[in-house]
Design a protein around this nucleic acid. Structure first.
Lengths: 259, 259
DNA sequence: TAGTGGTCTAGACCACTTC
DNA sequence: AAGTGGTCTAGACCACTAA
């Protein structure tokens, strides 16, 4: 027979979960301290602490060392659809508008920010497969970390064939091209206008580096997006891979049912 | 000054992570036991155990109670694209082919299985918003749990307007309609052929019930897919919400860059 | 039966936050 | 200085697995 239907830690977790779900502990509210819980439930402090860790791993709670445990606030969620690549966002604008250090020209992007790091690297397997070159070939890598309200939200690393971007501001100038449309604009200028995109979407737990880089709360998954961009005649002009904090994004696609 | 750049548990985690990444511990390999680790690193058993829990939460390791800890095997990943809804998969077939208990008629679906549970429920907020009815209205709910090789992979719960499906085998017959195309076929038969789909994709940690239902290893995220299906004239004929074990799926979409 | 992971205790100490 | 979460210990006990 099962002697214990629920362990002490699980009882605490269940109770707090209910309190959160019922709104008795609204978003941002402070949870009882570890020492409080230990006394109330007559368990050791380790057990009470474990309960908080479990709630944290579920994404329901964030802990602030030295301060307390709090019901996690819901972030505003950004909806990502094909529109974010729309031609009008990059076609009619000057390349200079994409340059870092020229802020405010597009107020819709006001809160966004990004760092950038362009270098020539050897293509690994996924990159070479997407761009159609041999493993180890030299390709341009453009690594970015996107920030929103001072908090990193996702990374996006693009790869280009040197023949496509050599001599463009994308890889030559510093501080370089900023904004999501900058790369597309440069490709279009080189006679390689992007036409079609394939996006692969997959979720997983972050690596240790990603958790650090994106400042992820423990228990937050990431969504990896791999994007292949082609011209109208099917030529691949960009491969990009991004890692997104899962709680901040929804991807949305609308399409006709195929035959 | 920081006295400890790395805690004992983190040292163990880092070492094992390296062993896994380097292939010294290949997929399926058994890790050293908690007692082994405790002795080797001269730490308490609790600390060694914690290291395994951290690796499990990263999705790198699975533990089998009483047996040991093992490097997690990579599942075969299923690629989900618009093709899975293709017309030819449901239009030309007889409704009977979708009925549970008539296996093997479509060998490509041989390994798949599903349970089904149809009932009339009150629409909650997301359902009513999608179907365009008031909260609390009666709608048909068709809840399914999909299985692959005996292991549950995802749930899929569809909602229909009673006026659309009343009197059809979708809600009347038992065991009822099976297979992904069954619902579309029935709607088409009623003069409401599905034409367009909008899918919203979001990742998060599972709830306690989901982890149980889908038999998820600790640290496995889920992907929630919400689907709205419309006819050619824009009428919504189905709202569906699925929860998928993240490690078993990739979603793939190809589209032309919009203006 | 021997070995395994899982949970818990009681207490120590540390690092951080808040006042 | 007081209160907080985080980590660790040494040991106990339980539940499960495998031979």
């Amino acid at each position: 027979m099962h002697p214990d239907p629920q362990s002490p830690a699980q009882r605490i977790v269940a109770d707090l979960r209910d309190d959160i779900a019922a709104g008795r502990l609204p978003a941002g509210a402070k949870l009882p301290s570890v020492r409080d819980l230990a006394e109330r439930y007559d368990v050791s402090r380790s057990t009470a602490s474990k309960a908080l860790i479990l709630l944290r791993n579920e994404g329901l709670v964030v802990t602030r060392h030295g301060s307390g445990a709090y019901v996690r606030e819901a972030y505003p969620i950004r909806r990502l659809g094909p529109d974010r690549y729309a031609r009008h966002r990059w076609e009619q604008t000057s390349v200079e508008a994409f340059t870092t250090g020229v802020p405010g020209s597009d107020s819709t992007r006001q809160q966004g920010h990004q760092t950038q790091d362009v270098s020539l690297v050897a293509a690994d397997e996924p990159v070479s497969a997407a761009l159609g070159v041999e493993v180890g070939s030299s390709v341009y890598e453009r690594a970015r970390v996107m920030t929103r309200d001072g908090i990193p939200t996702h990374t996006m690393t693009s790869y280009y064939l040197p023949a496509h971007v050599e001599g463009t501001p994308l890889v030559d100038s510093s501080p370089g091209i900023a904004g999501p449309g900058g790369g597309f604009r440069v490709l279009a200028d080189r006679g390689l206008p992007p036409h079609e995109i394939t996006e692969d979407i997959q979720a997983r737990m972050p690596t240790a580096e990603e958790a650090l880089l994106l400042d992820l709360p423990s228990g937050e998954p990431v969504v990896e997006v791999r994007r292949v961009t082609r011209t109208a005649d099917g030529q691949v002009v960009e491969y990009a891979c991004g890692v997104h904090a899962a709680s901040r994004f929804v991807w949305s696609y609308t399409y006709a049912i195929p035959d």
